[in-house]
């Protein structure tokens, strides 16, 4: 029963990781590509880490919860890096299918004047 659950978690986690990267390779412009890795991949790795917690906790050597740290860390950092990447792309005027908001592309839109390109 436990092995069954573990196997399902592992395969589902790996599948989500794969779909995230598939989105990265397949979609048309940068902003849509951003969605795959930030969500699908994070959840996929999360599922794999939960499987790891279950696996190491049920081997009779006591609870092993430190994989939760990696999950927690990924869930905190993934949105931050996605936001920074989107901001950098807006700044560089990367090609986009959706019309980007005009004010975000202004060179002076940042609080500080940028220097040296």
């Amino acid at each position: 029963m436990l092995e069954m659950m573990l196997s399902v978690l592992i395969v589902v986690g790996a599948l989500f990781t794969f779909i995230g990267s598939l989105g990265l390779a397949r979609l048309d412009d940068f902003y849509t590509r951003l969605h795959g890795p930030t969500k699908a991949t994070t959840l996929g790795v999360g599922a794999l880490l939960i499987a790891s917690v279950l696996y190491f906790s049920t081997r009779g050597e006591g609870l092993s919860l430190h994989e939760i740290l990696v999950t927690l860390f990924l869930f905190i950092t993934a949105p931050v890096s996605a936001h920074l990447l989107a901001k950098a792309a807006l700044h560089l005027r990367v090609r986009s299918i959706a019309p980007p908001p005009p004010e975000a592309e202004e060179p002076l839109a940042d609080t500080r004047v940028r220097t040296g390109d």
Partner: peptide, 14 residues
């Protein structure tokens, strides 16, 4: 583009 490559690196490490 450059952001694409950074995003790919980010995905690679995850």
């Amino acid at each position: 583009d450059k952001p694409d490559r950074i995003l790919a690196l980010d995905t690679l490490y995850i």
